[in-house]
Design a protein around this nucleic acid. Structure first.
Length: 359
DNA sequence: TCAGGGCTAACAGCAGAATG
DNA sequence: CATTCTGCTGTTAGCCCTGA
C-alpha cells in the first residue's frame, strides 16, 4: 500500500468515487484479510460446544452484538495498520454518542477527516436489513461512506485453535453515503403507501414521517432498510454523478450477492448432513441454480414445474427450493414421482423433515 | 406470492405515577 | 417522604404477517 495515496484518501482529498473505489479495492481487502486471520478470529470463536440462541427471538441480539464487535475490530485493525505505514498523526476514533457515523478519522487537534458508518449483516439471516436512516442533511458528501460487512460463523481456518466456529468476513461493501441516501430517498418519496389520505410522506426535522389515511406518524423503522433502498430500473432517478453511479452499481451487486451467499452456506451445510462426497453446482438449461450432492440438491428461486423437471433430470431423492428469504419447499421422490412434503419451512427444520420422512 | 408495513429484544436510562 | 413501578427514549439487526 502506497503511503501517499493512503494519506490523501484518509484526509478525504480525493473525489468521492475514487475514494469509494480505493476503500473497496485496496483498503478494506487488507483489513478483511487481517480480521479473517486465525489470530484475530480466535478471539470471537465459540469453543467446547458453546451454544448461541437458536430461537429467532434471541438470535437477533447476538447479531447486534457481533455488529458492534466487528465495527470495533475493524477500527482496531485500522489503527494497527497506520503506524506500520509510518502514519502517526491521524487515527480512527469511535463515535460514542448515538449519532451518525460510527468511526471518524481524526487529527490530534480533533479535526475530523474521513467518516465511516459500519453495518453488519449475517449471511444466513433470513431478512438481512440493518437500517441506513440518516437524513440527507446530516451527511457530508465529501467525507462520509457506508461500509457493509457480510459475515457468518465458519468452522474452517483453524490450525492451532480448537474452536468449533468463529466469525468470518465474506465481503465488505463500500457506498458513498450521500449517494446511497439519494437513491434511498428518490425511491422512498416516489413510492409512498397507497392509503395516504390527504397527507404526504416526507421528513420531520429529526426523522422520516409516514401518513396513513391522513394521519401522520413517525416512520416505524422500515425507512432505509438496506435491502429495500433501491430497485434496478426504477422510473425516477437522482442526479447521476460518478459517485452515484458507482454506489448504484455496488448496491445492485450487494443486493444479489448477500442473498446468494446465505443460500450457499445453508445449502452446503445441509447437503453435508444429507450425504457424503463432493458438492457440485446444480446446472440446468445452462443456468447455475444451486448445489448438488449425490441425490440431494438445493436450488434458489425455482418454480414448482421447473423443480420437478430438475428432480427428474438428476434423478434426485431430495430437492429443496429456497426463496430469497430462505423459506424452503421440500420435494421428495416417492416411487418415481416427486411429492411436495413441506412448504414455507425454515432452513433449520429442513434436514429433520427429510430424515423423518424416510422413517 | 412477496413487498413492505408492523413490530421485536437488548441495551442504559429518565420522568412521573403509584405505593408503602 | 422515600422507594418502586410503569412507560417511554433511541440505537442495533432482524422476524412476522398482511394486503395488493
Amino acid at each position: 500500500m502506497d503511503k501517499e495515496t493512503f494519506i490523501k484518501m484518509l484526509h478525504a482529498e480525493e473525489r468521492p468515487d475514487v475514494t469509494s473505489q480505493w476503500l473497496r479495492n485496496e483498503y478494506f481487502p487488507v483489513i478483511m484479510e487481517r480480521y479473517n486471520s486465525e489470530a484475530s478470529r480466535k478471539r470471537f470463536g465459540l469453543y467446547q460446544n458453546e451454544q448461541i440462541p437458536a430461537n429467532e427471538r434471541n438470535l437477533t441480539d447476538v447479531r447486534t452484538r457481533m455488529g458492534v464487535l466487528i465495527e470495533f475490530e475493524l477500527a482496531r485493525i485500522s489503527n494497527e495498520l497506520l503506524p506500520e505505514l509510518g502514519i502517526t498523526d491521524i487515527f480512527w476514533s469511535y463515535v460514542v454518542a448515538n449519532r451518525f457515523p460510527d468511526l471518524e478519522i481524526r487529527e490530534n487537534s480533533g479535526n475530523r477527516l474521513l467518516r465511516l458508518e459500519i453495518k453488519s449483516l449475517q449471511c444466513i439471516a433470513e431478512e438481512k436489513s440493518a437500517n441506513f436512516d440518516t437524513l440527507i442533511k446530516d451527511i457530508n458528501p465529501n467525507t462520509d461512506y457506508v461500509i457493509v460487512c457480510l459475515w457468518d460463523w465458519d468452522d474452517a481456518g483453524k490450525e492451532e485453535c480448537e474452536w468449533d466456529s468463529a466469525p468470518r468476513l465474506y465481503k465488505i461493501y463500500v457506498f458513498h453515503a450521500y449517494s446511497l441516501a439519494m437513491l434511498r430517498d428518490t425511491y422512498w418519496l416516489n413510492k409512498p403507501p397507497t392509503n395516504l389520505g390527504n397527507g404526504y410522506q416526507g421528513f420531520d426535522i429529526r426523522y422520516a414521517v409516514t401518513v396513513s389515511g391522513g394521519t401522520y406518524s413517525k416512520e416505524q423503522g422500515n425507512y432505509g432498510k438496506l435491502t429495500r433502498i433501491w430497485k434496478e430500473g426504477f422510473d425516477y432517478r437522482p442526479v447521476e454523478t460518478p459517485e452515484l453511479l458507482d454506489t448504484e452499481r455496488e448496491y445492485l451487486l450487494f443486493q444479489k450477492e448477500i442473498v446468494l451467499k446465505g443460500f450457499e452456506i445453508l445449502a452446503k451445510r445441509q447437503l453435508r448432513q444429507l450425504g457424503t462426497g463432493t458438492i457440485d453446482p446444480l446446472m440446468y438449461d445452462d443456468q447455475d441454480l444451486g448445489y448438488l450432492l449425490d441425490r440431494s440438491a438445493y436450488a434458489m428461486n425455482v418454480r414448482k414445474n421447473q423443480a420437478l423437471r430438475i428432480a427428474a433430470y438428476y434423478r434426485l431423492s431430495n430437492l429443496v427450493v429456497m426463496t430469497e428469504k430462505y423459506k424452503c419447499t421440500v420435494y421428495k421422490e416417492q416411487d418415481g414421482d416427486f411429492e411436495e412434503i413441506a412448504k414455507n419451512e425454515k432452513p433449520k427444520n429442513v434436514v429433520d423433515i427429510i430424515n423423518q420422512y424416510e422413517n
